[in-house]
Design a protein around this nucleic acid. Structure first.
Lengths: 221, 221
DNA sequence: GCCAAGTCTGAAACTTGTTCTAGATTAGCG
DNA sequence: CGCTAATCTAGAACAAGTTTCAGACTTGGC
């Protein structure tokens, strides 16, 4: 079967491994779809990603597109997963160089932000989809959230964050998403987003408990 | 757009020169529309607010509805303006009683949160509209944002916030919106939202500079 | 090679936000 | 009152997301 719909095996939240062995051609289709989605999004943002056009550009029938991604929101959230994965890989290769955790997180997010600035329409499509998603897309949105959390924790250099630190990370994520929205809708400047990110990152200092080790972890590069 | 009279020192005064002096019946129509919108939203959230149904419930033609509110998003954002205004009035009558600014802000937001919990579907419609709004709705969304800022600054008890404090307030707003979203989409519990709010409010302590006059002790009851 | 089950296609249909049009109603004005 | 411009109404029409279905194609097992 496909990624979009799980067969209703209770409610055991096993959102990930629903990847049941796609055929070569199916994997290729899925990739074509995601590529077409990103391409159209890059051109004209959320509204430019029209399901009929995605299907045509990917060379699949509309029904097939819906079999792979049960809604436009699912499709765009999956697109975001894809992009985030890229980012995560890149970041692991070149970790941020700041001196303390707050600086590294801010630098990481600003780097992500700069990447988004290069494709503002794509950013628009992905972020709008993410915040507009309703309960039906929760597992997928959660995956994106976990990815983002992982990226931030990486930047902090933490293996075993305290609950307090996790709260700070969640607040940072909130700020990140919402600040992006205000930027995308033209209500905040790039400089303002930068300030907001730096401001919220100061929370990290608050939760950095001396003695717990704000430490360099084992090599991750 | 009769919004006439919230006071406060909004330096950028009326961002809406389209003050059209509505007649009695037009004002009544506008009221009926907003009421119908809130009612439908309370029943079934964002998707339950269908323009045809709003029009019918309000007793106006579809074209008229679109004359008053040029899109569903505009309509729901206006609905949110309405509700926020209520909240602001209520809060001014019964200001929060916490000892320091952070506590008062957290209490204020939790009060707002509890109000939203009483009408989760309405909250869903309004918040989703707010974060989904694109550039075309920016002025209206900005009005909501200014209202929210005013509420938070009220809770802090500040007349002349520093830029740093304004940054903190913006981050608090980001967190507030995004935390609501995660709650509405079932990805965070009420308790979690509470924690996030309390966490982000600690930023206020960080920006409270002892010596700049933190308004700590002007008695506010 | 052949069948059964599952998948993909093409096209039409349905839903809901949005736009358009022609005619009725209302507001403002002399 | 009677005129004119603006507004309102009913309803069709259009756009894009989503669903559905019959028939063609693949896949996996024999």
């Amino acid at each position: 079967m496909d990624r979009g719909s799980w067969n209703g095996d209770s409610m055991t939240a096993d959102a990930r491994p629903a990847a049941p062995a796609l055929t070569e051609r199916q994997e290729a289709r899925r990739r074509r779809i995601l590529h077409a989605s990103a391409q159209l999004a890059s051109r004209g943002g959320f509204e430019a990603v029209q399901m009929r056009e995605v299907a045509e550009a990917a060379g699949v029938a509309l029904g097939t597109l819906y079999r792979y991604f049960p809604s436009k929101i699912h499709l765009l959230v999956a697109t975001m997963q894809d992009q985030l994965q890229h980012l995560h890989t890149t970041l692991r290769k070149r970790p941020p160089a700041g001196e303390d955790a707050a600086q590294r997180v801010a630098e990481t997010l600003m780097r992500a932000f700069r990447a988004l600035q290069r494709e503002p329409h794509l950013a628009d499509a992905m972020v709008r989809a993410l915040t507009f998603a309703d309960r039906g897309v929760s597992p997928e949105v959660d995956t994106v959230s976990r990815l983002t959390t992982a990226i931030i924790l990486d930047a902090m250099g933490l293996e075993h964050p305290t609950p307090e630190q996790l709260s700070a990370v969640r607040v940072i994520e909130h700020t990140w998403h919402s600040a992006l929205i205000t930027w995308l809708s033209g209500r905040a400047s790039i400089a303002q987003v930068k300030i907001d990110i730096e401001t919220v990152c100061r929370l990290i200092d608050l939760t950095a408990e001396p003695g717990t080790g704000t430490a360099r972890e084992q090599d991750r590069g």
